[in-house]
Amino acid sequence: MAMATKTRRPFNIFRWFASTGWRHLVGLAVCSFAVFPLLYILSTSLYPNNDINNTTALFADVSPANYISLLDQESRPFGRWYLNTVYIGIVTSVGSVFLSALAAFAFSRLRFKGRRPGLLSLILMQMFPSILGLVAIYSLLSDVGRVFPILGLNSQIGLMMVYLGGSLGAGTYLMYGFFNTVPKEIDEAATIDGASHARIFFSIILRLVAPILAVQMLLSYIGVTSDFILASILLSDPNSLTLATGLQQFISDPYSKDWSMFAAGAVLSALPSVALFLGLQKYITSGLTGGAVKG
């Protein structure tokens, strides 16, 4: 704003560098730091020979060979893992957003005994690191699995229930904040017009916060599909694995390490997450900073 009042000066490279040019240098340096591991994995995935010694130059040779043989491995069914991951991710994220929305609606719109203690314990329970609950979850699922194998260890349904249970607390709390931003006058007006509570919840509130629900689902999807530890402890059958646990097999077994396969698998697994993330960048970052800068 201050600049507009000044008279135009002739272009001077030194002055340009001092004010904006160096910023490009910093930008380039930081960008190379950020991107070189990703370029490395992309390059490895396209390099047709599983000889890590030769991968000194990025993109020395480009071929889809690794991708083709990746989809063709019987002992490591990559395609199956991919479907498992998408399936578990979608069911869990939709389920957790829906259940959190139900609970958040009650906390935000209804007044009842135990509302405050309820909210407080939601916050407190979140602070218990989930890794430390592994013993309890493992023994719970192994007990349940003895009677109902479909809900026990090595069952995807069991794993999904664990994810659901784990994400509900934080989800409810976040959603509670969002619901509070919808003016109460809207549902009061609808009540006068004769709408039932279910109608207000499904047709009014959920509609109004739909974009936030979508971002919540996306974040929950990314979180669930990146989980390594629960999935690796609860799933064991090669056909039921998720990408996070399956891909590891390519590099953990010292006798059959296969970096090229791993790299190809990593690129394919990361694509949806990265694409979604970049596409919805604006919403996600505003969600990150919203609480911080306005609070």
């Binding site: 950020a34 991107v35 996070a244 997450s273």
Partner: peptide, 12 residues
């Protein structure tokens, strides 16, 4: 470009 590391799944 700079938020790519954040978008890339952590375990990978």
């Amino acid at each position: 470009v700079m938020i790519l590391p954040y978008a890339f799944p952590g375990f990978l």
